[in-house]
Every structure is written in structure tokens, then in C-alpha cells.
Amino acid sequence: MAVRAVRGAVQLEQDEAGHMADQVKQLLTAILDRNGLTADDLISIWFTATPDLHSDFPAVAARELGIVDVPLICAQELDIAGAMPRVVRILAHIESDRSKADLSHVYLGAAASLRKDIAQ
């Protein structure tokens, strides 16, 4: 098994805790499903949120999905002029036999425009 990293992002329609939880759960589930992963394959997850998101911690959604024994951390993205607003990003460190090229990075909705080169 190798240590790999898989990325993803989603743009929220509004800064509301329930909406954030739903969108982050959808993103995290898609990352796991598209890469054939389970919670046991997760080493750690970094969540970042743009500075305009204040309603909750994105990591709450992972805990609500039952990911309870994986280290999680939340951080704030840089406040760059012109950057896409209301975005939550995920960087998950995983154990996998897949090559880096075989990993599916997941960018949902409008967030797909952030990384057209790797979004699937």
C-alpha cells in the first residue's frame, strides 16, 4: 500500500450549516465512491473553507458520515481577490494500491472550474 492524496471541492450556494453539511457529505462520499475507498483507507483529511464561510466546520460532515477515527482538521483558504466564493476543499490522505494517475479528484458543480485539468 502507498500513501496517496486525493482532492476535491464544492461551491456552496449559501453559508448555512445544514447546507454545508449536505454538500460536504456529498463531496466526501463522491471521493470515496469514485476511488473505491472506505473510511478504513483514510489516513487524515484537511478541509479548507473560503473566508466567507462561517456557519460551521466542514469536518462536522465527516463525523456525521461516521468517519470518527480519522484525524480531521479545518483551515481557512487565502483571501485572494477574485477567488471563487463559498468553496470548501478537501485534501484526503489515503492508503491505496492505485497509482497517482488512477485517482479520481472530485470537483462538484461550479467548483469543477477550479481544476479543469484534474476534475472528473
Rank of each mutant, 00 (worst) to 15 (best):
I73P: 00
W46A: 14
V106F: 00
A21K: 08
A75M: 14
D102I: 03
I43G: 08
S104H: 11
K116S: 15
A111F: 12
L12K: 00
A61F: 01
A110L: 09
R63Y: 09
V10A: 05
R98K: 14
I90Y: 08
E13V: 13
F47D: 06
L114S: 08
Q76C: 03
D52C: 08
I31P: 00
G66A: 13
S113M: 05
A9C: 05
D69A: 11
L27Q: 05
L114H: 03
A62Q: 07
G8R: 00
G36E: 04
L37M: 06
P85Y: 10
H19L: 14
H54T: 14
A17L: 11
A83W: 02
E95Y: 05
I118P: 00
R115M: 04
I67D: 10
V106P: 00
D117P: 02
Q26M: 11
T29N: 14
P51H: 08
L32E: 04
G109C: 05
E64H: 09
G82M: 06
G18R: 13
L27I: 14
A112V: 08
D102P: 03
H54G: 05
I31D: 03
A39Q: 12
A59N: 12
N35Y: 03
G109I: 11
H19Q: 10
I73Y: 07
V6P: 00
A75V: 08
S113K: 09
S104I: 10
L91M: 14
A9P: 04
H105M: 04
A110D: 15
A75T: 14
F47W: 07
G66C: 02
Q26A: 12
I43L: 12
L103H: 02
A39I: 09
E16G: 00
K25H: 07
Q11W: 12
A119H: 01
L28P: 00
A2C: 00
R63V: 13
A83K: 09
D69R: 11
T50L: 03
Q23N: 07
A112K: 12
E95T: 10
G109T: 11
E16M: 02
A21C: 03
M20N: 03
L32F: 07
R115N: 11
P85R: 06
F47C: 08
